[in-house]
């Protein structure tokens, strides 16, 4: 049995023994004590802090820290960008004062005179109706990140709850497996179309449509892990000792899963953003008046073939890739760090 003892627990036991040997006199050591449950708890949770160790392990990885800061900076910048001086709202069509017509497809870095007489440099150029690509990309990133994070959180919360119940409580397995079979096989497209039919198109609708079905994957993922570990010896032991199911779930199973859950969430965010691109591709995405990375990429896809216009595709793709890479790398690092066995 000892083979399967959790390393963290082993370490804790060692710590306790050392402490006792160091601080207590022989007499005290052999004194009888009244049983005091609060004291049991106290020693059980000594100087080892799971989260502190996790963060310490995480901080040691330079690449992870770099990408994490990149994510933070990206997110911050999407909010700061509109407040910077000399920014043009993403929705505004910029007209040429000479002809009164929009400045279409200006290459990146072009400096032109605006209708109000001021000179403006379009850092990333303009799109085919003269909107500023720079501010469009930031507005798009903001929308897409918002969608990605919100959906990931909803999925995680619902998915974890359902997944644990499904995996641990055998009586529910039948019900949830059937529910999964049913829900997983109802084409998302039907749901998307119907939601789009009932509710006005917009960010909220899209989030709803994506989360309506998205949690199933997470739930099943968790369930499979629970099934794998629920009958491991230490859980058997806990059950034999009469530990209540909620406590086993919270104390035995969840910590084991945290690394996996974190990774899964970190990947779900960019996956959701990518999913938004796909939904836009099949024509069920956000209205094109709302800037999103999906819309930007989809509109610009035809331009991959035109060297002079390719920038309209490349820049949103770069941002999307950066977001994904950042989440992926920092998610992986966090998942490594969150594994208690790595806290050596």
């Amino acid at each position: 049995m000892a083979r399967f003892k959790h390393p963290a627990i082993e370490r804790m036991e060692e710590d306790i023994t050392k402490q006792m040997a160091h601080e207590m006199s022989d007499v005290e050591m052999f004194d009888f004590e009244e049983f005091d449950e609060s004291l049991v708890e106290k020693t059980g949770y000594s100087n080892y802090s799971y989260w502190r160790s996790t963060f310490q392990a995480f901080a040691r990885k330079k690449s992870a820290m770099f990408f994490l800061s990149l994510v933070v900076l990206l997110v911050l910048f999407t909010f700061i960008q509109p407040l910077l001086p000399g920014q043009i709202d993403y929705f505004v069509v910029n007209n040429d004062p000479a002809s009164g017509l929009p400045y279409r497809n200006l290459p990146p870095g072009t400096s032109v005179e605006l209708m109000n007489g001021t000179q403006h440099t379009f850092i990333l150029g303009t799109n085919s109706i003269g909107q500023d690509l720079w501010s469009n990309i930031w507005a798009g990133t903001r929308t897409s990140l918002f969608i990605g994070v919100t959906v990931a959180v909803i999925e995680a919360v619902v998915g974890i709850i359902v997944g644990i119940l499904w995996g641990y409580v055998r009586k529910l397995d039948f019900f949830f497996t059937e529910l999964y079979n049913v829900l997983d096989n109802i084409p998302v497209t039907i749901v998307l179309i119907l939601v789009a039919y009932i509710l006005p198109a917009g960010v909220g609708t899209l989030i709803l449509a994506m989360s309506l079905t998205g949690w199933i994957g997470m739930a099943r993922f968790i369930r499979n892990f629970i099934i794998i570990i629920r009958d491991r010896e230490y859980n058997l032991a806990s059950r034999c000792l009469g530990t209540k199911t909620p406590k086993i779930i919270l104390k035995n199973l969840l910590p084991f899963l945290i690394s996996i859950i974190m990774l899964r969430m970190a990947l779900a965010i960019p996956a959701n953003i990518g999913y938004e691109v796909f939904i836009t591709y099949i024509g069920l995405g956000l209205p094109a008046t709302i800037a999103s990375l999906g819309n930007l990429i989809n509109v610009a896809r035809t331009m991959m073939l035109s060297p002079a216009l390719r920038y309209q595709l490349i820049y949103p793709t770069i941002i999307l890739s950066l977001v994904t890479i950042s989440f992926y790398v920092s998610g992986n690092a966090f998942s490594d760090a969150a594994d208690p066995r790595q806290h050596v």
Binding site: V277, M304, L313, T317, L320
Partner: peptide, 19 residues
């Protein structure tokens, strides 16, 4: 490689591969 495949939208790299 994994990061690249995850990061670049399929809609873009499929088209790129084809062209």
């Amino acid at each position: 490689f994994v990061v690249f495949i995850q990061a670049v939208p399929a809609a873009v790299y499929f088209l790129f591969l084809q062209l």
